[in-house]
Design a protein around this nucleic acid. Structure first.
Lengths: 327, 327
DNA sequence: GGTCAACATGCAACCGGTTGCATAGAAGAT
DNA sequence: ATCTTCTATGCAACCGGTTGCATGTTGACC
């Protein structure tokens, strides 16, 4: 095993306290002593035990990031950004995958709360009350979830969705579908209500198509429903679903964007779909970075409750076009 | 804060030892006592501190998973499987993203080694010696890396690559390119050598095109190189690169599979590309699950050094076709 | 030369569990 | 009734750090 602080102390001929302070509060010691201790420690390959330190200080140097589905392409960039930013503060990251399941999310929260300084909950599927309960025990920052009093990073897709609706209106579309994501998702609610508002303001028909899962497959099966509704355009909850829509329409012989226009959300696929997807960009990596900063701020003693709204913009690629005739 | 074992002990009118044993060794106690203690503990919301437990037992109940790039679609299914499987043993997972950078990988290993029971290194970019050094301190299971004496889960793409070469040969292709991934990657070496062997056996020309990054962008830029080589088919290191190739060829006005056939590796994109990608399936989720099982086995005292080879198969979709005339 | 402040270091308690050993009480053997 | 055995529980040390307080040393100042 690793050498302990005791062994370093003996080898350096000082007390354990001194070794401890040589690392945590070197200003308290004679510079020569610090040098000596560090030297001996380095020679022995001493690494302070995070665990022992945590036990006495109550600070763990770890944070936890919980997401509903690692496989959803929205999350990897966010995960990566959190990781990177946490690393700057020397923190390590627990990753939890709740599989869209609130119970599992609760279990993970409980299991991890004894070994992290705080949580980042991305697109949490828990109820407000549950989240509040957890936030009372440990600092929590929410991503895409809006609960008063807690730290929040919100990707404000309302704006982008509004742009998307106007974009479709200008192209002559009058009947539009919104293909929904998980009903427990704040983002989904926000996008749906922004779409409703936009459609109402412009006098458009808006149909709701309930997607099953926010995934490629969910989009593909929603495509089958969409062809029956005689809409000329569809806005999907996210890019995965939009991608599935493209595939579903293609399989059904429906031309995109000739017969039907498609808009995604999050811009996580770039121009990788065929045709390249018109979508609402949302900077998941920024959200991850900012959420981590906010959490680190909370750990440093800042007040909770701050809200960061990230703007979104419509990125027009090739899946939207003028509405077909006689529609 | 959470209630401590002491508070539970007082509330239940027993000693700390008894509370401890009610959770860790209930067989040692009177069943009634166990029930009482658990009851009181539940009422108080007591959760044993992992950290304190780790300090005295030396077991942390955590594992770490290190990957080169969370954003690479090969990894999310693997991450998810590891997560899920670890959960069955009640273990939590630290995720580390090395960004394809050996130094960062080393830092993460060092930082985490004081708080995990073992590591899963997926597609590690470290040298054999470095990995061995870490394995001497903590149990390590490798995914897609072959070092004698260590636990290994190897996706044996040699077989699938062989099938792919034969498939192309049957379609009449005679000049093929292999678009390579990271040179430090075991998988890349394995795939390249399997392709070389297959090509030699069948008397085919095999060109090597050095990809920059194992990503969509890396594939797209490799496509530009590929059009100059006059090959009629390309096998890419992974699906992301293959996907990039498709995009690159499409942008260059090269028809796939009419003019050039493309084969990917890993089958992580399913039929989501356009055209749907012919690829070599490799069960990343199986690899994650089995690696976790293997690590748990090591922690339980099994001997290290086991090797698991996962077979791969060619999945023919729509990016391969008969070689063009006069090629 | 004596008083006192400032500095450097050590002592010992504490964080919250686990565990080897001791012991009290009950059950069984003679 | 006494001795042994077994079961259930408690005592206290330990894991490896941190930290408030006490102590010893040095130098400045009067």
């Amino acid at each position: 095993m690793n050498p302990t602080i005791q062994q370093v102390a003996e080898a350096a001929g000082v007390s354990r306290s001194t070794v401890s302070r040589a690392f945590t509060r070197p200003d308290m010691l004679n510079p020569e002593t610090v040098a000596l201790v560090r030297d001996v420690a380095a020679r022995l390959g001493y690494v302070p035990s995070q665990v022992a330190r945590a036990l006495s200080t109550g600070r763990f140097g770890n944070i936890a990031l919980l997401v509903p589905d690692v496989g959803n392409p929205f999350f990897p960039p966010l995960i990566r950004a959190v990781e990177k930013q946490a690393d700057l503060s020397g923190a390590c990251v627990f990753l939890g995958n709740s599989d869209e399941n609130p119970e599992r999310e609760n279990v993970l929260l409980k299991r991890l709360s004894g070994q992290v300084d705080g949580f980042i909950l991305a697109s949490s599927r828990l109820s407000d009350a549950e989240i509040r309960a957890h936030a009372a025990r440990r600092p929590v920052v929410l991503v895409n979830r809006d609960i008063a009093g807690l730290g929040r990073v919100l990707i404000d897709s309302a704006q982008g969705v509004g742009d998307a609706i106007r974009h479709l209106h200008e192209l002559g579309h009058r009947r539009i579908a919104y293909v929904s994501g998980p009903s427990a998702s704040w983002s989904n609610q926000q996008r749906w209500s922004a779409a409703s508002r936009g459609a109402r303001d412009l006098g458009l028909d808006l149909a709701l198509i309930e997607g099953e899962q926010p995934s490629f497959e969910g989009g593909a099966s929603a495509a089958r429903l969409a062809v029956d509704t005689r809409v000329t355009a569809a806005i999907a909850f996210d890019d995965s679903m939009a991608h599935g829509l493209l595939a579903g329409f293609s399989a059904a012989g429906v031309d995109v964007p000739g017969t039907i226009s498609v808009i995604g959300c999050d811009d996580v696929l770039g121009a990788r779909t065929y045709p390249p997807l018109t979508t609402i960009s949302s900077g998941a990596d920024d959200a991850g970075r900012l959420a981590t900063d906010m959490l680190m701020g909370l750990l440093g003693g800042s007040q909770a409750g701050e809200t960061l709204r990230l703007p979104t913009t419509l990125i027009v690629r090739a899946t939207t076009a003028i509405a077909r005739q006689g529609s």
